[in-house]
């Protein structure tokens, strides 16, 4: 399936062209811990140089460009570690960059628009982020270790873990709709008299967070979970 507004990422395309067309891909590279100058390299060359399987890079880059990868066997269990690393870096970005940024923007808005509504928005966002943090820490302390154990075929993975695929999915549902509530409130309903620049920055920042969370979720649901399900079924495990 392909959409027509962004380039479909291919191995031979020049990475810098792709980045100029969709700068969000630079964030994706950060999530992959690929922090180097891209020079004139193609996607394939860049991945080889950085020891990343090109297929993984392409599938996720295409998610960022709005294409859902359709192939079922694009990934193997060898990719699991890389994907977990990617997701962990996403977590760091949410916690250490996005959260403080949005919090400080709301605080700025409150300074010039000191109303109860803005205060409530702050509360609303804090409650929301609390929920996000809970989900992230669930992944870090239960889900990821479980996946890693599974990879090393440790039998205790199954017996001792509190992980459940169902619960993993449940966590996602509310996160998205709350962000959308927040955007609607800020845009349509909260009486703001001055400082529309801060409001714009706040809205953009929320959209960035939403966009990345959405991709984070797609990676978990479309790529990671099917891989884990396959691992769990593997017969030769003790």
């Amino acid at each position: 399936m392909y959409q027509i507004n962004k380039l479909y990422v291919r191995p031979e395309l020049k990475l810098s062209d792709l980045l100029l067309e969709n700068p969000n891909l630079l964030l994706m590279m950060e999530h992959f811990s690929l922090n180097s100058i891209v020079q004139e390299m193609s996607v394939d060359q860049f991945c080889c140089k950085n020891n990343l399987r090109t297929g993984v890079f392409i599938a996720i880059a295409n998610l960022y460009n709005g294409f859902q990868n359709t192939g079922k066997d694009l990934f193997t269990e060898k990719d699991i570690e890389v994907i977990i690393g990617f997701l962990s870096n996403c977590h760091r970005y949410y916690k250490q960059e996005k959260y403080p940024e949005i919090k400080s923007l709301i605080a700025q808005l409150y300074q010039t628009n000191t109303t109860a509504e803005v205060k409530l928005v702050e509360q609303f966002f804090n409650d929301y982020f609390e929920e996000v943090l809970e989900h992230l820490s669930y992944e870090e302390s239960i889900a990821f270790p479980y996946f890693r154990n599974l990879l090393q075929s440790k039998s205790e993975a199954l017996t001792e873990s509190h992980f459940s695929v169902l619960e993993y999915g449940d966590h996602h549902s509310d996160i998205e709709s709350t962000l959308s509530d927040l955007k609607n409130l800020i845009l349509k309903h909260i009486p703001i008299q001055t400082d529309f620049v801060v409001r714009r920055k706040l809205l953009l920042s929320l959209c960035e967070l939403e966009f990345d969370l959405k991709i984070h979720q797609s990676i978990e649901e479309l790529i990671l979970m099917p891989l884990i399900a396959k691992l769990e079924k593997k017969p030769n495990r003790e």
Partner: peptide
């Protein structure tokens, strides 16, 4: 109509 779902929103 409002674009808002949650109780606190």
């Amino acid at each position: 109509k409002t674009g808002i779902k949650s109780q606190s929103g």
